[in-house]
Design a binder for these strands. Structure first.
Lengths: 130, 130
DNA sequence: ATAAAGTCTACAGTAACTATAGAGTCAATA
DNA sequence: TATTGACTCTATAGTTACTGTAGACTTTAT
């Protein structure tokens, strides 16, 4: 199939597929006479894997590593576990940050009821303090 | 004071201050004979405001708008409230996404104990499914 | 006089795409 | 057969909010 069909099949955009190839996540596709990329199911399989990982928030670099490990199926898999553990930790950090942020924003929000002049706005006043 | 002192005072980097000026968040500083930017307390005041906003996760565009509103102190402040409400909503969306992500990652993590070969790794198997 | 530290502008790089320009390919229609 | 439209190609710029670098200039200290 050509890249448009693969895009439709995987739910990725044409540009994204080309980008993944360029970044070495997807192996270079063979070309037709007219220089069009031509794909088989292996490609869609690989793209679904990448998509799954992206949905979990893994970076392209982490995915590159996972792909690397999959090429040595008899090695120990602790590197794979490590990537996931690491990623979970990053998500936890980000979650804590966002929750604190949400708390501060909620507090800030109570400072004004939107019926003031800018110069009397409690939010503005709060932001101007330090 | 020169830019280095201002940077130390505000905790921002020299480049960041120049960047804010370039982006129109900080008004252009007067220059010395030797073409060095020269600042007074107004600048540090403005930078603390920007920093405060950045710490709350506001984008530079949102901050630009807030600065714009502060120049019309007699107008109604509902635009300011709107920016904050909008931002809170974005944070809530992101929080929900991250929490779902965390749940999925936790579940994925249970699939392997890191004592397998790559080809038997439960995490890898899960990622390969679709 | 000289060396070190600070500052200047302009540009490249970051992550993971998205959008655009301009050219070429292919299938179907007039 | 000519042409239209849909699809694809490469290469490049733009996105966000900075950070880092190169090369030149200014100021301060020895």
């Amino acid at each position: 199939m050509k890249i448009g069909a693969l895009a439709k099949l995987t739910g990725l955009s044409v540009q994204t597929i080309r980008y993944y190839e360029h970044e070495g996540l997807l192996s270079t596709a063979p070309r037709t006479e007219g220089n069009y990329r031509f794909y088989d199911e292996t490609a869609s399989h690989d793209l679904f894997f990448i998509k799954q990982c992206r949905n979990l928030g893994l970076t392209l670099e982490e995915i590159r590593q996972l792909i690397g490990y999959s090429s040595t199926p008899d090695e120990a898999c602790n590197s794979i576990n490590k990537i996931i553990d690491n990623h979970i930790q990053q998500v936890d950090v980000r979650l804590a940050e966002l929750q604190e942020l949400r708390r501060q924003l909620g507090e800030l929000r109570t400072k004004c009821d939107a019926h003031q002049a800018v110069k009397d706005c409690g939010i503005m006043k709060e932001l101007l303090e330090h």
